[in-house]
Design a protein around this nucleic acid. Sequence first.
DNA 1: AAATCATCTTGACGGCGTCAAGATAGCGAG
DNA 2: CTCGCTATCTTGACGCCGTCAAGATGATTT
Lengths: 230, 230
Amino acid sequence: MAEATPRAMREHYHHGALRQAMIAAAEEVLAERGLGGFTLRECARRAGVSPAAPAHHFGNLTGLLTAIATLGFDDLSTAMDAAVAAAQEAGTSRLAAIARAYVETALANPGRFRVVFGQRGIDREDPAFRAASTRAFAILVREVRFGRGLPPLQLPDGKPSADALDPELPEVLLAWSAVHGFSTLLIDGALDFLAEGNRQAFLDRHAARLFGLLASALSVEDGPVSAREA
Amino acid sequence: MAEATPRAMREHYHHGALRQAMIAAAEEVLAERGLGGFTLRECARRAGVSPAAPAHHFGNLTGLLTAIATLGFDDLSTAMDAAVAAAQEAGTSRLAAIARAYVETALANPGRFRVVFGQRGIDREDPAFRAASTRAFAILVREVRFGRGLPPLQLPDGKPSADALDPELPEVLLAWSAVHGFSTLLIDGALDFLAEGNRQAFLDRHAARLFGLLASALSVEDGPVSAREA
DNA sequence: AAATCATCTTGACGGCGTCAAGATAGCGAG
DNA sequence: CTCGCTATCTTGACGCCGTCAAGATGATTT
């Protein structure tokens, strides 16, 4: 497949599905070496193609990363939706399930997760990316509203009107910030001094309590419920 | 100062304070071009020195970034402590003040903030870095405990014993995750589709509510306050 | 005054992303 | 059926990157 003989080159001069092949190679490289070790040339190498070939399909490195980011966002949506369905079934907290799914997706392939959040130049105006991003955000909004006993919002097609989701925005932002922050802190090793070399044990020990705390914080009806016996 | 004549070169063959100069240059580059446009060679250029000169002081790029990260963590600590003092004075929520300070620090110099959290290879085992990191974490722990009406923890010197801070760990993690996640989402532009081109207005509009929500969530006395009428 | 040592320069290496120019092949129009 | 068109891919080059080995320089110690 990656033959170097003139014969094979002649036969495969036109790759035929380079775009797909590049994306597959990119996912591979990200999983293997992370975002730091990610290289356009290496992806081209694995796709069995010259370094300049991808330009025609993706424009440049940013284009490739944007494509990866779009897929990554879709995976995030898929994982969250699946988690919600499972929690629904099991009768457990849907918000906690979403949180778990988000963090697990990030930890499963940190390099890819970092691409999604543009640690290395993606095109946020790209229509496909925007669509994927909006889709994921809508899931979060829907679940936060569900957690507060509110009916789902009518999301015509494009982005939800800012006014419509304004009332619950702080809750949504808190939810997203918390799961996203926890994910990045874990990925970047900022919590390693607490995990003492065993990240999984650390998660088993504290993640559920953290997610539960978040879910219950978001379910609280109104203002400060403190002042209980302070 | 950055003369190129042999004369000046001879006079300045030994820079004398290259370490400082490199750090200053690095901060400059980070502020100007962000972490993506950050380059060891560019820093050396601004310090008026050859590309290989910094090696003697920092080892390699990672060494320089680690030094920057250490300073960045210290700034985070300073900002948080100042915010707490101010809130104390004003009688407002100390936790909300810390949150605001954290986010503001991140937004003030995103490139530097990204260095702190190792988006580009730092040495987390570096003693100075570890100390700075522990210091900042201790502030967070102290304030979360204060918010819950608990006395400050005895932190001998090194890291706090894991057992001692175990009870409040979920709250601390939630606090850190939320402020960190909000910061990175903002920095990475993931919230731009909500901010509609005016990030400051967006913050003015929603940040206070978000921080207030977080602070009150952390002040809740005990377990799930949900199940109220679910 | 001589020797030692930290500091800095020079020149080179391989790897990167990108670009211009040319080779190749599939495809539609005649 | 063939001719040309166009999308696709290669080649070779450019400037930039981080790093290294070897040598120059100057401060410090002996």
